[in-house]
Simulated scan of single mutants.
Amino acid sequence: MRIGLITANPDHPVLAATAALLARRHEVVTVDPTGSAGVSADVYLLKARTRQALLLARELERSGAPVINSAAATELCQDRVRMAGLADAAGLPFAATVDAGRLAELADPAYPFVVKSRHSRRHDLVARVDGPTRLRELAAHWPDEPVVTQPFVRGTGWDQKLWVIDRQVFAARRRSELASDARESGPQDWEPPAERAALALRVGEVFGLDVYGVDLLDGPTEPVIVDVNAFPGVRGRPGAPEALAALALRVAAQRGRVSAGRGR
């Protein structure tokens, strides 16, 4: 089989490890996310979120090729307003998310709160705002940035990171960069309780994702989802490359069976 990696960074650790596993018996090709669908493959892994990458993924999907994750699901996870609306409609415990317009126009907020870029991307805005001085500082640097606001959840000061690949849950805890005593530290191994793993799986069902991350905080009465990411890095999680390789092969095999059935 041929597996296509839609990425500008094929050396990313999880992709490189997955490609090494697949290359033992299959062909792995890197597809430029800024190009056209000129490379044929049995399945594509979409590890890019740019407009060009999404257009390419849609072109491949129209031709009948399976893309993991789909262009529609990937694009949905870039818009925090749409994400929150879908999660709320599905009854997921997503942080209350308000479309606040441009950051420079934000007026009379209830401090403290968290402000985020509406459109999720690399190096986007995610910050805790404790008062007017901090708000003015951020607005000076991001005056035209469309933003959302969320209540600041004090929790324990630790982010709970759950990553799912084809319904296999991987997890770690990381010191929150928004905590008052935030400090640099690597992820810590963490075994999520069964109900939190089940919540992460439910997110995939609602959002139509096969490879994704869920960021949780401990709320006053229940865990709170503060973000969902399509195809995150899943760095340093034993078994993640194997799960991703198995997913690619399974989806490619399913496509082959469908194509064979159509040919009869």
Rank of each mutant, 00 (worst) to 15 (best):
L60S: 09
G256V: 10
E242F: 09
V28D: 02
P132Y: 00
R173M: 08
A260Y: 09
L60K: 05
S40H: 13
R237Y: 08
V98N: 06
V39Q: 14
L199Q: 02
S259I: 09
R49N: 06
V43F: 01
R196L: 09
A104P: 02
P13R: 11
P232V: 10
V28Y: 07
L46D: 05
L54C: 04
A107K: 09
S117V: 02
P13D: 12
D42F: 05
G35A: 10
V258W: 12
R134A: 15
P93L: 06
V115G: 00
W142A: 13
E184I: 11
R102K: 14
D42T: 05
L138Y: 03
P151F: 14
F94L: 03
R255M: 09
Q188M: 12
G4Q: 03
G85P: 00
L244W: 04
W163R: 04
L135N: 02
A37L: 09
L217K: 00
E137V: 14
L5E: 01
T97V: 07
A84S: 04
E75Q: 07
S70E: 10
T30I: 05
H141S: 15
A194Q: 05
A19W: 01
L21A: 11
R136G: 07
D88W: 06
Q254V: 15
G35D: 09
V31W: 00
D99F: 04
R58E: 15
A16M: 13
Y212R: 01
G186Y: 12
L15M: 14
V29C: 15
T221G: 02
P223H: 01
P66T: 11
D11C: 13
A240Y: 09
V81I: 12
P232K: 02
L138S: 02
A140D: 15
T156W: 03
G261R: 11
A71M: 07
D144F: 14
T133I: 12
W163P: 01
A23V: 10
D130V: 10
F170Q: 03
V148I: 12
D42M: 06
G219C: 06
T156D: 15
D144A: 15
P112W: 09
K116Y: 01
G38Y: 11
Q188F: 10
R262A: 14
